[in-house]
Amino acid sequence: MGVGIEVRDLNAWFGKAQILKEVNMTVGPNAVTAVIGPSGCGKSTYVRCLNRMHETNPDAKLTGSVKVGDKEIYESGIDAVDVRRKIGMVFQKPNPFPTMSIYDNVAAGLRLNGFNKRHELDAAVEGSLKMAALWDEVKDVLKKKSGASLSGGQQQRLCIARALAVQPELLLMDEPASALDPISTGKIEELIFQLKTQYTVVIVTHNMQQAARVADYTGFFLMGKLIEFDKTEKIFTTPSDKRTEDYITGRFG
């Protein structure tokens, strides 16, 4: 089951450049939230702060609080590794492990966490691949083909299956379809739509139509600030901020 997120006064830096400024956002469970904005507005950094991936860059700094479910993930004593185990992430470019089979790719997260029994893994791999709508295409070559031998769209769905296999409470997607063709993009969007019955999803996109199609809520970022956050319908029909309106009507960005 998905959990809610509560972000308070989030500031993030790379070196001296401040990427995020005083971001506040509350997201309910089992909903899809889209994060939109022109490139360089901080939207990718924002989702990377939600699973503590931001700090993997040695220049990164951060202040503020992020609650996932009822846990504060930046509390001292909380291990970033523990946080990431419960939050799945899908990246802009598909990044399957080229040296592992399809099966091993999906099982990777479970194996890390000590699941080694054949039947447990088999069931989890099949379930995740089915959920990612990839099972029918790969079920005959699970252990024969490498994750890198699939097409770009299949690779991205494999990465989604890999993220789902550990049953995360929250799924983060950083422009998951930007490197894909329209047909694969359609499949991914359909998938996101189904996922929200069981997961909380935060998706970064530069494609406003995509946000309008899949998201329940949408946040608009500009120069590191969250300008407006509301129901998707409201953002795209009657935005309350002039800058949001300019952006969605295509006047800049």
Partner: peptide, 13 residues
């Protein structure tokens, strides 16, 4: 059986 909700196993640490 291992569980995802438990903290990181001491062995991994």
């Amino acid at each position: 059986m291992p569980s995802l909700s438990k903290p990181l196993s001491p062995w991994r640490r």
